[in-house]
Structure formats: C-alpha cells, structure tokens
C-alpha cells in the first residue's frame, strides 16, 4: 500500500506533478470554454426569443443538434471537420499545412454543447423577467442595448445561475473526452502513468477522486456566487 502512495510523489519518482499538470489543463480548458459557451448560449437564447421566425428556426436547430449529438461525436466533427475546413480556407491564400490545436478544438466542441444547454436555461430565465421591467426601461428612455445590459442581464443572471452551475459541473466531467484527441488533460496523464506503472486501478481511482474534488470545490464557489447574485432579494424559505 505504501508503495502505491509512493507513486504519488512529486519529482522523478512519482506521478504527482504529471497528474497536477493534467488537472491544471483540465481546469484551464473548462475555464476557457465557459465565456465562449455563455456568450453563444445567450445569443442563441435571444435568437429563440426573437420576433424573426428565421432566427427562431436557426436557434432551435442549433439546440436540437448539439443537445442530441454525443459529445464525443461533436468533438470529432469539430476536430477533424475544423481541420479540413481550416485547411481549405488557408489553401486559398498560401500553400502550407496547418494543424488545428486540439485545445481550441476541445474548447469549441465543449463550448457549442454548453451553449446549446445554456440557451435553454437563459430562455427560461428571460421568460421569468416580468414585462414591466422592459416597459419601465423603455419609459426611462433606455436604448435596447442599455436595457439588455443594465436591466435584463443582471436579473437574467440571477435566474440562470443555478442552471448554469449545473452545466459547469457537467462541463468539468466532459473535458475528460479531450484525452481521446491527444490533449494532455488529467485523464490522459493518468493513462500515461498507468502505461508506465501498470497500476490502472489505483491511478484511475485517483483521477476520479481528483474530478470529485474539482466538483466539490466548484459547488462551494457556486453557492457563494448564488448568494452574491441574490443579495438584496427576499426569497421563500431564506
């Protein structure tokens, strides 16, 4: 047993620094995905809520497709398809070979999936904001952009935060899929450690526990963020 834990030392003896490096990449990937996913999700939600039937259609198709496809397939489509598309665009100008970074491919793939789910959360939140708020903003002479920024989004955030928090926890777990496209995240580093030590059970269990810790830490942050978003609000049961 002590030998096993010796494998978790830092330095050349153990695998702690490799696992930590992988964990750090997992965190960076998840953090990089969120702003992209949130903005795209909000845009899709606004499209689905708009008066234009074309925009509504586009928004609904986006949601249906990226909520229906396996995340792994989306990742492959973005990774290989993005590679082909990018190569074709570059070939128009210069004759060279380009490679799409697997980090960016992972970020885009996880981002569109996040956005598809987030758009539904935002849509429900948009509908929870009372019409009077928007009418009052108009009566005060605020422009549409200012209404969105000063009146709608702060309230939207409050309603959407619990749903978005759940999506963050899902995203953290989904980042593990990028190990399949050769990105050195936590799970891939674990695989490397397993290959060298022949201790699959111990290392995969360790990886699972690291993911669990990330989830627990996230939950603590999310509770704090919800508290902050709801400051000054009175609630049932609070």
């Amino acid at each position: 047993m002590t030998e096993l834990f010796g494998l978790l030392q830092f330095g050349s003896e153990g695998w702690a620094d490799e696992l930590l490096a992988g964990t750090w990449l997992t965190i960076r990937l998840a953090l990089a995905t969120v702003p992209f996913g949130l903005m795209l999700g909000l845009a899709v939600a606004l499209a689905k809520n708009s008066h234009s039937s074309v925009l509504r259609f586009v928004g609904n198709v986006f949601t249906t497709v990226f909520r229906g496809l396996p995340e792994l397939l989306t990742l492959f489509i973005v990774y290989y398809g993005g590679q082909i598309l990018f190569q074709k665009i570059v070939a128009l100008f210069v004759d060279t070979y380009v490679e799409v970074s697997s980090f960016v491919a992972g970020m885009v793939a996880l981002g569109v999936v996040f956005a598809a789910y987030a758009s539904e959360v935002f849509l429900a939140a948009l509908r929870a904001i009372s019409k009077g708020q928007i009418e009052a903003a108009r009566a005060l002479g605020l422009s549409r952009g200012l209404t969105l920024r000063l009146v709608i989004i702060p309230q939207l955030w409050r309603y959407a935060l619990p749903g978005i928090g759940n999506l963050w926890l899902v995203l953290l777990k989904d980042t593990s899929l990028v190990s399949v496209i050769a990105l050195d995240d936590l799970l891939r580093q674990t695989k490397v450690a397993v290959g060298a030590t022949k201790e699959p059970f111990f290392f995969y269990l360790a990886a699972c526990l690291i993911y669990l810790v990330l989830s627990i830490v996230s939950s603590v942050f999310l509770v704090a963020m919800e508290k902050r978003a709801n400051r000054g609000q009175r609630r049932v049961g609070a």
């Binding site: 926890l169 777990k173 989904d174 980042t175 593990s176 899929l177 190990s179 399949v180 799970l187 674990t190 695989k191 397993v194 022949k198 201790e199 699959p200 059970f201 995969y204 269990l205 990886a207 699972c208 993911y211 669990l212 989830s215 627990i216």
Partner: peptide, 17 residues
C-alpha cells in the same frame, strides 16, 4: 461526480489487475 469515461477506464483496465 466523476466522468463516465474515467469510470469506464477504471472498470475496464482496473479489473485486469
């Protein structure tokens, strides 16, 4: 709380041990 992919590896590769 853990990824399905990691669970699958844990069972599939871990069991071999």
């Amino acid at each position: 709380g853990t990824p399905l992919l990691a669970q699958t590896f844990l069972v599939y590769y871990g069991a071999g041990q």
